[in-house]
């Protein structure tokens, strides 16, 4: 499995990671090596095998819908990089300056 620079840039975009050109080149080579090593899995016959997402026999549990104390606004905001009037403050999402998608 040989990844291209475009592949790596696409993955970085999906992962919301800004990478330098050096990082892109390094990850292209390293991830290609790692995926080569993992190609062995393709040879395992799993046609009749269900996937395991969790080792536990998990079931949904119910509890009474009663009010319980949670984090105060002050505690929830204590680590915020920026805040205003009891809210998290962030750069513009929409508008001319917001280079979003």
């Amino acid at each position: 499995m040989s990844l291209t620079t475009n592949d790596v840039e696409h993955i970085a975009h999906l992962a919301r990671l800004e990478l330098t050109a050096d990082e892109i080149d390094q990850y292209r080579r390293q991830l290609s090596d790692i995926l080569d090593h993992f190609a062995v899995l393709a040879q395992v016959d799993t046609s009749a095998i269900l996937p395991t997402a969790s080792v536990l026999p998990l079931r949904s549990v119910m509890r009474a819908d009663t009010m319980q104390p949670g984090l105060s606004t002050e505690d929830a905001l204590a680590n915020a990089p920026d805040q205003q009037d009891g809210f998290f403050r962030v750069p513009a999402i929409f508008g001319d300056d917001a280079d979003g998608e």
Binding site: V8, A15, L17, L19, L31, I93, D97, D99, E101
Partner: peptide, 26 residues
């Protein structure tokens, strides 16, 4: 970061180290 979008990518690019980024990419 001047925009929300840059806020995500620049923060994560600068804040995570090489192995964490490698595993997020993988």
């Amino acid at each position: 970061a001047e925009t929300m979008w840059q806020g995500y990518t620049m923060t994560r690019g600068a804040g995570f180290g090489p192995e964490v980024k490698r595993r997020i990419m993988l």
